[in-house]
């Protein structure tokens, strides 16, 4: 089967390799002509995961129209802020039979839309799903044992995704809780920044475990306020992804936190990064959404203060540790 991968970043590259490993014919779309040309010539993506060799089944292209007309299944892995525009353009070639699966972890600012909602608005497709989980692109590309979740309201989407991606090093679970899987994936990026901060401040595993556990609680609170199911947060897309992001120095969001702890400003950090750290925008969006819904998210509020209200990490930390004096919480 010919499968489209839209987005030439690290995750797109790892997925293209995974799909090709499984014997699929992959049409790999990216914006940069030089990168596409280099892949077709050298079998390596010069910009992301250059060490990964892409098999002959992967064909790179810059023509988005080919994806819609040549592939019945499309994996969308562009940064969240770019998804709407790409989907709208791609939508010209899509019909109601296409299966769309995205691997984008974010929530649209202002509208608070999830990525499946954006795909639904920008295309005529209904068979839409989300791929999420503890998937650091580099480790997946190195064929280290990993697993992910595909969630969709349509069994066909889950089934298709599992058949395409399942391999000896990659397990794929199914779910119908789209809201839960999307919220878990997006909001954990906020916790990743917090984890980077904690590490940057020189704290050890106690702090990290505190952060992960209480972070998960507030992610689940928000998700459930939007209709998610609790189980999703206990699975790979929830606690699984959260652990990988918080513990791994490979995570971009984690690095943002570390550098903040070392005293760099957000501006400096953003300017020096070549890939998007989704967690920065997500923090703002999630913080606003939580206040609108009346969901209590103290860690998110703390990260928000550090990123956007120029409060020092130490001060926020002090407030966070003090908070239970004022607010009694039931710790699940």
């Amino acid at each position: 089967m010919r499968v489209g991968v839209v987005g030439g970043g690290s995750w797109g590259t790892a997925l293209a390799q995974l799909l090709a490993d499984n014997g699929n014919d992959v049409l790999f779309w990216m914006r940069h002509g030089e990168a596409a040309e280099a892949i077709n010539r050298t079998r390596h993506n010069p910009r992301y995961l250059p060490e990964v060799e892409l098999g002959p089944g992967v064909q790179a292209t810059t023509e988005l129209a080919r994806i819609g007309s040549e592939c019945r299944v499309v994996l969308m892995v562009v940064p969240s802020h770019g998804l709407r525009a790409v989907a709208r353009e791609l939508g010209d070639q899509l019909d109601g039979g296409h299966v769309l699966i995205h691997g984008v972890k974010g929530i649209e600012p202002v509208t608070y839309k999830r990525m499946t909602q954006i795909l639904r608005e920008e295309t005529c497709c209904r068979k839409i799903g989300v791929l999420s989980g503890p998937n650091l692109a580099k480790e997946v590309a190195l064929r280290q044992p990993s697993a992910a979740v595909i969630a969709s309201h349509f069994d066909e989407v889950v089934q298709t995704g599992r058949e395409l991606l399942w391999s000896s090093s990659f397990r794929v679970y199914g779910s119908s809780d789209v809201v839960g899987v999307e919220f878990a994936g997006a909001v954990k990026n906020v916790m990743a920044i917090a984890a980077g901060l904690a590490q940057g401040l020189g704290f050890g595993m106690n702090t990290m475990a505190l952060l992960v556990t209480r972070g998960l609680a507030e992610i689940a609170r928000l998700g459930m306020a939007e209709g998610a199911r609790l189980e999703s947060f206990q699975g790979l897309a929830g606690i699984g992804d959260l652990m990988a992001t918080c513990f791994s120095p490979l995570s971009r969001n984690h690095r943002v936190g570390e550098r903040l702890a070392s005293g760099q400003t957000l501006d400096e950090i953003v300017r020096s990064m070549d890939q998007v750290a989704e967690g920065i925008k997500t923090t703002r969006t999630v913080h606003e959404l939580a206040s609108e819904l009346g969901v209590y998210m103290p860690i998110t509020a703390g990260v928000h203060r550090i990123l956007f209200e120029a409060v020092s990490p130490r001060e926020v930390l002090a407030d966070l540790m003090d908070i239970t004096r004022y607010v009694y919480e039931f710790a699940p």
């Binding site: 509208t111 608070y112 999830r114 909602q117 639904r120 606003e288 609108e292 209590y296 908070i323």
Partner: peptide, 26 residues
């Protein structure tokens, strides 16, 4: 609002209410 969950139940003044409808907006 950031300290007291009870207060946050009053909607924040800045945001416009989200429009209903759309995928999985049930």
């Amino acid at each position: 609002a950031s300290l007291d969950p009870g207060f946050a139940a009053t909607p924040d003044g800045v945001r416009t209410a989200r429009v209903a409808g759309g995928y999985a907006d049930r």
